[in-house]
Simulated assay, not measured.
Amino acid sequence: MKYVPLDHVAPHFLRDAQPLRVASRNERDLLRLIWKSPGIERSDLTEPLDLTQQSLHRIVGRLHDRGMLVLSPSESRRPGPPSPELSLCRDWCLTLGISVNVGSIGLCLMGFGEPLENMEIAQSGSSLALEMERIEAAVEDLLARRGAKRRDILGVGLAVAGHRMLETAFNCPLPLAHWSLIDLAPLLGEQLGLPVWADNVARTAALAEAIFGVGRDVADFAYIAHLHGYGGGLVSGGMPFRGSFGNAGEYSVLFGRQDYDDRPALSVLLRDLHARGRPDLTLKDLKNENLVEWDGVAEWVDRVTPAHNRTINAICAVFDPALIVLGGELPHSLARMLIERTEFNNLPRHGALRDVPRLAVAEVIDAPGAIGAALIPLFETVL
């Protein structure tokens, strides 16, 4: 039987109406607008939502009664009856984001649309059951920090490194082979007793960048995730574009097996540094901004620049975004080196060049995959 996360949402989060769901379409539109514009006055919502004043008042009242909205006196001095300012009640629910990468597992506890706590635990070994037990223990630790209970969690977003396969299974890099080709959402859902939505970690990182990073003011952008592997995500209209099979943004498919060692994948850099006398380095150590001074790093950047440029130009040709973000676990210093070496295929025609996207370094640095994953339950139910 197909796993449906909505079927596992706790009853106290559901509307007292049929069909059973967390919020209606009109309620979700209103909540998302308030989330993006906290403190907006109720009277300013009528036009963008295309609702009558009576309908708007009724919906706001219903959401306030459920504890989802905070109403505050307006500080504006406009003529007419005062209209309250609206914001989301951060304590109405919690969501949890979990990102599984080679070498690390990130966790993010989020209030109603606001990150609260991040945590990182080591990813090691080859037992899925043991790693899920360690994830559960970390979840309890996060909840204890906030004085919260598991029943306060609306849902969980799971982000996994690897190509998405059927349902919630992924084809992961070799060090994560024990996470591969298994329908993960029902397994983790049973472990935690919570509904679980799953996606690729690069796409959840792109979502985090869209909401909390440089993508806040750009509706269409591409995100390149430099992790153990080399992938990314596409954001269209402010939301992730996944494609028919859930793998839009898998930039590694641009390269044949003979070119794999020349991709800007951090596992390749790590292997090079091991061979140059740093055998104990891990991916986490590559976050050190001083690594640009290490022996072999500049040579690696020069070697992967052609592959970087191939990806940039493929993105321009197919997606035509306004912005391309270099992120994942790539240190800002290396990102800037790649940006400086970027060459667009932009031959002039009739003396004119076409517009090309701006390149930027990711702003969401700590646990972007987990932060984006924590947003998924909200976007699937209330926003």
Rank of each mutant, 00 (worst) to 15 (best):
L109R: 01
R58S: 15
T381D: 13
L286P: 04
F170I: 00
D285N: 14
V22H: 08
A206P: 02
W197G: 00
L20H: 13
I224E: 02
G231P: 01
I135L: 08
H12M: 06
R66T: 05
K36W: 08
D29M: 10
E380S: 08
I40V: 15
Y251Q: 04
A202Y: 05
L378W: 14
V70D: 08
N345H: 11
S180Y: 12
R257L: 13
L207G: 02
P38A: 05
A298M: 06
S252P: 00
V60D: 11
D91Y: 03
I376F: 09
P82C: 09
L49C: 12
H8P: 01
A373K: 00
S124K: 10
S99D: 14
I312K: 03
A225Y: 02
R15D: 14
T168R: 03
S72V: 05
R310W: 02
I224R: 00
R349Q: 13
L338N: 02
Q191H: 06
G238E: 10
R151W: 08
D50M: 08
P82M: 09
E289A: 10
N346R: 14
A360C: 09
E363K: 15
E47N: 11
V356L: 14
L359K: 02
R77W: 14
N247H: 07
A185M: 06
W92K: 10
R146L: 12
G372Y: 11
M1E: 13
S43Q: 11
A370W: 01
A210I: 05
H226K: 04
V100M: 12
A322I: 03
P82V: 07
F245G: 09
V382H: 12
L128T: 01
E133R: 12
V356Q: 07
S180T: 02
G39E: 10
L334H: 01
S333R: 06
G61R: 10
V297E: 05
A367K: 07
R150F: 08
N290K: 09
V70Y: 05
I59N: 05
A206V: 00
C89V: 05
M68D: 07
G256V: 04
G113P: 12
F212H: 14
P11A: 15
E250K: 00
G80L: 12
F212Y: 14
I121K: 09
P11G: 08
R21E: 15
L283E: 06
G113F: 07
S74T: 13
S124G: 07
R242W: 09
H226L: 14
G296R: 02
R78P: 10
P173Y: 03
R78Q: 14
A202S: 13
L181R: 15
G113R: 12
R145C: 10
D285M: 06
Y230K: 00
R164Q: 12
I98T: 02
L326T: 01
L254R: 11
T305A: 15
T95E: 08
L187H: 05
I315T: 02
L30T: 05
F112A: 13
N345I: 14
S83D: 13
L266H: 00
D259L: 07
E131Q: 15
G256D: 14
